[in-house]
Design a protein around this nucleic acid. Structure first.
Length: 213
DNA sequence: AACTCGGGGCA
DNA sequence: TGCCCAGAGTT
C-alpha cells in the first residue's frame, strides 16, 4: 500500500500528465448533465456526446421527455447501448423530477440516488460537476488505477475504494483528482495495455513492477 | 457477489 | 469476429 508521501507524488505526477482533465460530457446545465451521465453507463463519452448533440436540441426540460412515447425516445437514443432501459429510466426519472422536485435537479447525493437509472457514481458526478460539491465518483477507471497503484486494496469494493480515496486525499482536491484519475486510466493506465514501460509512476506502482518483471 | 443489459468502436 | 466501454438493477 502507498503511504501519504507516495500518494501525493502520484497525484502530482498525474496532474502534470493531464493538466486539463475535466468532464468531457456535453452539457450546459444540471439537467442536461444528469441525462448525459445516465446515458454514459457502459458506453464511451464520445458516443454519448454524438447522441446528445441532437438530443438536447429536441429535449430541454423533464416535460419534453415525458411528453413523447417511450418508443420515440428509444429511437432518439438508439445508437447507445442499453438504450431501451435507459429510455425507460429517463422517463421515470423525469416524472420524479416533476412530481417531487418541481422539475428541478435535486442537489444532494441522497435524493439523486433515488432517481431511476442513477446510482452512486452518477450522483457523485452530478453533484461534483453541476453543483461544485467535492466528490469522488468511482468508475472502472478510478477503481482499476487505485488498485494497481496501491492507493487501496485489490479486494476493496467500489464503496470501500471511494471511502479510502476520500480519507487519503484532501477534500478540496476530490473533484480534480477524480477527473485526473479517469484520464490517467483512460489514456495511459489502460485496462489492457497499461503502458508500464513508459510510466513515470513505475517506481511506486505495485502492479507496474510486477508486470515488468 | 454474480448476472444481465447492448450497440458502437476498435484491433 | 471478439472484446471493451465515465454502471445500475435484480437475484
Amino acid at each position: 500500500m502507498l503511504n501519504k508521501t507516495q500518494i501525493r507524488y502520484a497525484l502530482d505526477t498525474i496532474a502534470e500528465m493531464f493538466p486539463n482533465a475535466e468532464c468531457e460530457l456535453n452539457h450546459r446545465n444540471p439537467f442536461d448533465l444528469l441525462i448525459a451521465v445516465v446515458l454514459s453507463a457502459q458506453c464511451t463519452d464520445a458516443l454519448v456526446n454524438k447522441v446528445t448533440v441532437k438530443l438536447f436540441e429536441k429535449y430541454h426540460t423533464p416535460n419534453d421527455y415525458v411528453n413523447v412515447t417511450l418508443e420515440e425516445l428509444q429511437q432518439d437514443i438508439r445508437s447507445i447501448g442499453l438504450y431501451r432501459n435507459k429510455a425507460k429510466n429517463i422517463q421515470k426519472l423525469c416524472m420524479s423530477l416533476l412530481n417531487d422536485y418541481n422539475g428541478e435537479v435535486p442537489q444532494t447525493k441522497e435524493d439523486l440516488e433515488k432517481l431511476a437509472g442513477v446510482g452512486r457514481k452518477t450522483a457523485n458526478v452530478v453533484v461534483s460537476v453541476a453543483f461544485g460539491e467535492p466528490a469522488i465518483a468511482v468508475d472502472t477507471h478510478v477503481e482499476r488505477v487505485s488498485k494497481r497503484l496501491g492507493i487501496c486494496r485489490w479486494k476493496d469494493s467500489v464503496l470501500e475504494v471511494e471511502n479510502t480515496l476520500m480519507k487519503k486525499i484532501p477534500k478540496e482536491e476530490w473533484s480534480d483528482t477524480h477527473h485526473r484519475l479517469i484520464f490517467f486510466g483512460r489514456y495511459h493506465c489502460k485496462s489492457k495495455n497499461p503502458n508500464c514501460e513508459v510510466c513515470p509512476l513505475l517506481d511506486i506502482c505495485r502492479e507496474g513492477k510486477k508486470r515488468l518483471k
